[in-house]
Nucleic acid binder design. Sequence first.
DNA 1: CAGGAGGAATGAC
DNA 2: GTCATTCCTCCTG
Length: 322
Amino acid sequence: MSSPDRHHLYMEIPGVSHSHVTPWAVDEPAKMFPGFPSMPEYFSHFDMVLDEDKAWLVRKTEISTPLTKDEEVTHCKEARQCPVTDSVGLGLCPGPNGHVDVEDKCLEQVQALVLEEVLKDIETACKLLNITPDPTNWSSGHVQKWVLWTEHLYRLPSVGWAFQDLRGSDLCMMSEDDFRQRASQCGDVLHAHLDIWKSAAWMKGRCSPENNDFLGKVLLTDVCGEADSSCTAQPIHLWQFLRELLLKPHNYGRCIRWLNKEKGIFKIENSAHVAKLWGIRKNRPAMNYDKLSRSIRQYYKKGIIKKPDVSQRLVYQFVHPV
DNA sequence: CAGGAGGAATGAC
DNA sequence: GTCATTCCTCCTG
């Protein structure tokens, strides 16, 4: 992953040509997300961490209206200047005629969707790793899990050893330079990811569920949704873990994906990677696909997973699809 | 050779 | 007892 100009957030806007990818100055986070005036650089690192997520972002924003060239310019200007007063895409800023601009609605829809997806991703990672969303509460073991996970998810060099014996509170005190000193190759990226986690935890604390606002809804839906394993504090089962990965195709689609979601048929595209993720989750560094597949085969008797009628390598089927 | 099937021992909970 | 891990043998394409 490259480390581009970190003072701009690049987003692809539907209807806007690639040459007009919109750079939003985010040195003024209050303008980007005015509900979070002191939010610690929440979006200043998105360009470093969302490379893989552009596709879904574009898909998710297909609802908006294509913009003309003039509109794009206006859009860019107003994205920088508009003093929006509400938070997280719910407040709408009046246009020149006192009307809410369509472009601003689109912009804020995109912002809200990005925020929603980031929060969901964090909640998913918490479920999969069995860690709390707030990094300040992490033990050194949690820190190791998080570092390993982030390395694997974003294909970073292996630097977990550089963060051994650090607790979450220690990690949160470290500057980007501290991260770079410990991990010259990807310390800045890890620091960026940690910033997002810290900000999400900050927001979660700020937007309590009883507020019944947008964030509260997002977090409640995701944290305490149906079939959620994190609320029950039960150890996650392999089949649940696999299902969680399958439910996040934009993060894990390269290592596991549905072949037929209705029938519950899925394929493990990268067996070593899935095994590694499972090993991280279970604190089993020696986990490999041989062992993981043995565990999957244990499910045959239990009627949880089976081989599809037409057996294929690395293809399995949930007996009871969602 | 990688993946698949399944037996058996073991350990954590 | 359940579940997962580990190690193993044998089979298949």
